[in-house]
Design a protein around this nucleic acid. Structure first.
Length: 410
DNA sequence: TCTGGGGTCCTAGGACCC
DNA sequence: TCTGGGGTCCTAGGACCC
């Protein structure tokens, strides 16, 4: 039975989207006050790096994320370029999550710097959603000394639109009654799932605003973007989004990839690169207590042509040796000399829980797993650099590989 | 000095089974 | 002796998101 009465009613706009402003750059400015007011770029400094985050001062020069750092620096020679410190961002992200969970258990992170919150059950304790949102912004500013923007709306999609609209350092509440008018004039590119390609295809059919989209039959949209996208698009155009805020969403897959500063050209280099990536993936699988059934090799040529090859194993694995053997077996189907390679990747998907005991490995490659688990323990106690495979210590590998980073806890 | 790294979801074709 | 339909799994690629 639901209690009757206003005090218990679920508010009409219970969903919050909290999004940190220029997150990585803001953390850097906070931790080094000399950077305040200056154009700050966080990104790879190795020559092939791109912008991961840019302060609003840098954005005034037309610098956007994913832009090559080289290009960004040409636009703004006075910009300070800082290599990412993921540990610092992860720490800030953890503190942020603690603040979120102090108002509701229904917290769904989307990335290190943003999350959905359903505060529908929190109003009796903490007040209306807008008041909760304002309180969160205050606490984030006071305790983390970081700027955040918050959207308050009836559902996830609208809340995300609102937080974007509120940026930087703002709060926007969209009442249910205002949804239709708000959406009608919106550019279709603002819809979730409409990127450059889709926007171009829709525009070619005369659909530029959400209002235009509403006037077109779903079947006609499906011919442009496929059935599934057409259905979602139509719902979003009417402000409908039934997805619940869900805490603890299990990951579907996990991968590691690396763009090399200098292209790789021979099989020995590729073998070493794939071994290092296999180790990173295996370690993360074991840390998450999962095993993968499907292994994917990713190869990008010097001319940026990208291929993937995958194989599904009979027995799920979390062993670097197995991952490595699998991607090495796939390699000849994706690469042949003398093609130069700029990126390698190793992916693991079709994850199964170790607890569920799906794997019954009677043939006993288990000794590899034992050895690797011992290695995990040594690294946990003495640091990531404490143990490295002999094959990775080769001089050529050391010279060509970017400094390795610890894998991010997720 | 062109184009990172980590993900999710969808589509389409083929294999295979009933 | 000429061709069904449904369902599931696997693989490759692409769009999109932060």
């Amino acid at each position: 039975m639901r209690p009757v009465g206003d005090r218990d009613a679920r508010p009409p706009e219970p969903i919050l989207h909290v999004d940190m402003d220029a997150f990585y750059a803001s953390v850097e400015v906070r931790d080094d006050p000399r950077l305040r007011g200056r154009p700050v770029i966080v990104g790879g400094t190795g020559g092939r790096g791109v912008v991961a985050s840019a302060s609003y001062e840098a954005r005034r020069f037309g610098i956007t994320s994913a832009m090559p750092v080289s290009q960004a620096v040409r636009r703004c020679p006075s910009a300070v370029v800082i290599p990412p410190r993921f540990d610092a961002y992860a720490a800030a992200s953890d503190a942020l999550a603690d603040i979120f969970r102090s108002v509701t258990p229904l917290v769904e992170p989307l990335a290190l710097d943003e999350a959905f919150l359903d505060v529908g059950g929190s109003v009796r304790l903490f007040g209306a959603p807008v008041e909760i949102a304002a309180g969160l912004r205050r606490r984030i500013a006071d305790e983390l000394r970081l700027p955040a923007s918050v959207g308050v709306a009836p559902n996830k999609f609208l809340a995300k639109l609102c937080s974007r609209r509120a940026k930087p350092d703002g709060l926007l509440h969209l009442a249910r009654a205002d949804v239709d008018a708000f959406l009608a004039e919106l550019d279709i590119a603002e819809l979730w799932g409409v990127g450059e390609q889709t926007a171009r295809r829709l525009a070619a059919a005369g659909i530029r605003r959400v209002g235009d989209l509403r006037a077109v039959e779903e079947r006609a949209i499906a011919r442009l973007v496929g059935a599934a996208s057409a259905h979602t698009l139509r719902e979003l155009a009417h402000g409908v989004d039934a997805r619940a805020v869900t805490a603890d969403v299990a990951a579907k897959g996990l991968s590691a990839e690396e763009t090399f500063q200098v292209d790789l050209v021979d099989v020995a280099q590729l073998r070493r690169g794939l071994l290092a990536l296999s180790e990173r993936v295996a370690r993360r699988l074991r840390a998450a207590d999962v095993r993968a059934r499907t292994v994917t090799l990713k190869v990008r040529d010097a001319d940026f042509a990208t291929r993937t090859r995958s194989r599904t194993l009979g027995v799920a694995t979390a062993e670097a040796a197995t991952l490595h053997a699998t991607v090495m077996a796939l390699l000849p189907t994706a690469w042949a000399p003398p093609t130069a390679i700029r990126l390698l990747g190793v992916g693991a998907s079709q994850l199964v829980d170790v607890d569920h005991g799906v794997q019954l490995d009677l043939l006993g490659s288990g000794r590899w797993n034992d050895a690797e688990r011992v290695a995990d323990a040594v690294r946990a106690q003495f640091g990531a650099a404490a143990l490295t495979r002999g094959a990775l210590l080769d001089r050529a590998a050391a010279a060509n590989s970017a400094p390795s980073r610890d894998d991010l806890p997720r």
